[in-house]
Design a protein around this nucleic acid. Sequence first.
DNA 1: TTAGTATATTCTAATACAGATATATACAGA
DNA 2: TCTGTATATATCTGTATTAGAATATACTAA
Lengths: 127, 127
Amino acid sequence: MELGKLYKCLCDVQRLRIVNLLMQGALCVCHLQEILDESQVKVSKQLQYLKKMGLVSAQREGMWMVYSLNKPFHPLLVANIQASLVLRDEYPFFAEDLIKRELILKRFTENRAECPKVVYQSCENKG
Amino acid sequence: MELGKLYKCLCDVQRLRIVNLLMQGALCVCHLQEILDESQVKVSKQLQYLKKMGLVSAQREGMWMVYSLNKPFHPLLVANIQASLVLRDEYPFFAEDLIKRELILKRFTENRAECPKVVYQSCENKG
DNA sequence: TTAGTATATTCTAATACAGATATATACAGA
DNA sequence: TCTGTATATATCTGTATTAGAATATACTAA
């Protein structure tokens, strides 16, 4: 992947947070929206951007559009997310978002109807 | 430093290459121009951009403007450059630029008049 | 002072992007 | 078919960025 493109994906904090989240597994728009506390339009647009750049893919499941980070993950993507997670004093939202994600996934185990299969599966894979 | 800003600095390949080079030591515009094989205006503008973003500083020495990467280097900057250097099959220009830089510095040892002191010193420091 | 070298600025036009608002589509269930 | 939920698209506005060309500045040396 072209380097300029890659960094363009990361140079918006919302997108950066989305990438961080998707690296843990697929998520649908509404849950990204919930975690990022952003409007639907904004989240959807950023996802379109990431899709246009070839970083993510979308997959419909019923009402939901499930987005996932394309594999294999680019080494630089991994390096950046890992490095950012380490700098949690300066950029706490990375870790915080992952916690919010965990809570949502936990909620799913109680009410599976709230969540697309794909997301649930990626949750189960994690153990 | 704000993350968005940092990645904006990196999302242009010329700027990325400049950062890679400056991480090794200060350089003046004309030598960056030579290594990147770009027009003076473009190189100068990218340097202004990086300066505006707070990533580099400029220092005049005679005819030359010497640019250096502000310290301390941001951990994410270091992580990205290191990771990019490792991926030399995909992004060979990083390593190539460093070789060109070495050649220029070697040229300076033969003709010191061609080079500002600051650059020469950073060259000597390296061994 | 003049010429030459190194660098920066200004102008214009093109493009990309972000935010807001409104509207449209896709699907599920009654 | 109607309703609600989830998601996407369109439009407009403002701002940021980029490129190229021309010009200006800063300094050196003669």
